[in-house]
Design a protein around this nucleic acid. Sequence first.
DNA 1: GACAGCTACTTCAGCGTTGTCAATGACGAG
DNA 2: CTCGTCATTGACAACGCTGAAGTAGCTGTC
Lengths: 335, 335
Amino acid sequence: MRRPTLEDVAAVARVSPKTVSNVLRGRPLASKATQERVWQAVAAVGYRVNRAGRALAGGGSGRIAVVVPNLHQPYYAENAERLILALADRGLTTTLRIAPDAASEREAVFGGTTADADGVIVCPHFVNAELLGGKAPDRPVVQFGSLPTGLLDTVVMGEREGFGAVTRHLLDTGRRRLALVWNATASGRPDGRRFEGFVEALAEHGLEPDPALMVAGSDWDWRAPGFEAMTGLLASGAEFDGVLCINDSVAVGALRALRAGGVRVPDDVALTGFDDTDEAEFTVPPLTTVSPEHEAMVDAAVRMLVERLGGEAGPPRVHRTGAHLIPRASSGVPR
Amino acid sequence: MRRPTLEDVAAVARVSPKTVSNVLRGRPLASKATQERVWQAVAAVGYRVNRAGRALAGGGSGRIAVVVPNLHQPYYAENAERLILALADRGLTTTLRIAPDAASEREAVFGGTTADADGVIVCPHFVNAELLGGKAPDRPVVQFGSLPTGLLDTVVMGEREGFGAVTRHLLDTGRRRLALVWNATASGRPDGRRFEGFVEALAEHGLEPDPALMVAGSDWDWRAPGFEAMTGLLASGAEFDGVLCINDSVAVGALRALRAGGVRVPDDVALTGFDDTDEAEFTVPPLTTVSPEHEAMVDAAVRMLVERLGGEAGPPRVHRTGAHLIPRASSGVPR
DNA sequence: GACAGCTACTTCAGCGTTGTCAATGACGAG
DNA sequence: CTCGTCATTGACAACGCTGAAGTAGCTGTC
């Protein structure tokens, strides 16, 4: 019951193994008639390419490494799922690499443990120009989200416009004292494109961010830090009628803290997240959030990767996608 | 800048490539001194094994396929994460295959699209003896959870005892009219080991399941079906003071339905889940659940797989793990 | 002192595929 | 009718690694 090889197909199609190989790779070298015969033979013997052989001979492994910091945060799990399925549609298998720290993320991008992949899509938690050491990897790597480094093809989400939109949404519904629950940043203050969107939207209403209302959890953007940060904010005695969280998971943590503190959402305080993860739809109350247009992001990432795999040269590209508000009950009109 | 091969290492260590290979594979054929020299040479040239070459030559690819129905359900995402990390600890890379339907799950187990993996760990949604066609695959496959088929090494969680424990917990805290929110089953009625645990625990208190209190969502065990099912139960006008859900995701959906219906948790109704996923800790109120002892399950699965990869023969084994109650506020004592 | 039985290696062929380049045949031009 | 050209296809040698089957050199044995 040996697995059929190119040679078996060749015997049936009455051509050389090399011709079978050419047909399979879609090379326009064989005549129509030969191609036809080869495909029939492939079906007849039930041939499937041996990736190891192909990889050894230099034809590529057909394998893509998807790199995420973890899978327990829905944001990463859901993106990994979308990417894996989209890659599978193109006939590419996925090696999923969990890189929980900067060193392993860097290593995964450059290829130590993912050396057998033809390309990489990294959902970065750490990547930046410094981490990359200013060097571009020697195979196609697409960065999925976060800030472009100028070194990698990058898909960026509509962070500024999205966060601006949700900020305006709160302002438009009468909220004025807006708190921010962020992840830990190097500077100790909220930063990044989302923060810019926030500041811009406030400015349109003649407002400025209030440092007393900006809090961050410990080192990771996740539910527990959101809970901690909000608990701290409540304890500070600060007054606010709206809370914008850097993402949905943080918002879920913050929501629990608000409820534990006896604060009603949305009656006393409006709450919002970002990312449009599945969990946001099933919180109580359902969470207003921002959709980064996942489909468009995944499409762009896979398309760019495939183009590079196909030999496309040129400087790193940046694909920008939009973002739109998903209003739900957590930001309902206050009484 | 060619990637170093066995031959490069061999040249430095002044031995044959084959000896280097033997040392790398841990074969006790070389002398201590030679082994030492080889390892130094490996470090010196920065050698990393070429998996394609090894796989072609028959030495195995060092790659394991982890098969899950999806990654958007936290149960699967969290298990995938644990499995991938545990496999990585053993030097095994993971191909993550998302198999959303029975056909692709079967195909992934038998090896069509995962042919290049040395072994498989499948978190099944469909696998059963019939689906497998009564045949065992020709490479190590470990089934992670669900019912043993007698064809695969299987890790089973403490479903019956776990569900029994949570049932007793509700009974012990005075709940008597217990509803069940299940996933869709072939029979249209709750079944399986968890259900057995439920029935047993009820019997200890001289009670029987009430068909009017058993509901199921549509075709998938997930938040929305939990919501639907609970909405239906509320609409039926049935009275109950406790709800046991087949898993945490269903419970999250049910929780939202309860809240939407103005039912207070836990004051009016106690609510419980199963699986101890991360989301259960951050619902409002936090969800009482059952921990299937993830660590033990993952350890057992990886250990069995590695043993099989190491050539261990013998009939399919079943490793049973325990389960313990994690009481939280959602099942707090009623007023 | 010839030889079996070790230990410590090496040699060799081949895994399935592909790139390179050569070979074949058909066909039109001269 | 011969020759060059183009369109097809084939032969061959890798790619990096490992299993099987060697070959030395040494020890101990009768």
